[in-house]
Amino acid sequence: MIGIIRYGAGNIFSLTAALERLGIAYGMINTEADLAQYNRYIIPGVGHAGAAMNKLEHTGLVPAIKALKKPTLGICVGMQLLTAYSEEGDSNLLNIFPIKTLKFASSPEHKVPHTGWNQVYSEKENQLFKDIPIGSHFYFVHSYFIEYDNAYTLAATDYSIKFSASIWKDNFYGVQFHPEKSGIYGETLLTNFSKI
């Protein structure tokens, strides 16, 4: 069963609706004691990364999250929190991945926020992208991106610059796009995560 880490950063109605459609059981994590009830975790998040980090710190869950050994998936800003730093609010983050979250440069050719369906190229063999063709479209909405890194990028997307659409390190995963809004391949990814 998936435990969703609740820290007040954004609405999770669409995420829980997707899990319900897929028949994936889930519950909510509000305190450290809740963690033991679940065998995998999702860190959701939309909005401002610095503000989200402040909220997460207020829950007192940060040390326990950094010590997690079970599969953990950060989505959108929830993924950015796993990195070391974000230019958004000049914020230090969880530093599970020693890489940075940077702001897109906006131009008429590459508008910001990066909004819409873009192609995702998985670069490593991993269960998370099982049965998802390389180059499938996923739905993105974000103004900040995680830099590309050979060691940690699981899947890449190009938007004026090649960036991490997905990251992976040990039991930690992140996706910049919204799997709950990404049609059938998004649903496949959530199902895959529920089986990792």
Binding site: T157, D158, Y159
Partner: peptide, 11 residues
């Protein structure tokens, strides 16, 4: 062959 990825036009 895969070309330069681009944001899809939305319908």
């Amino acid at each position: 062959v895969a070309c330069q990825p681009m944001l899809a036009k939305r319908i």
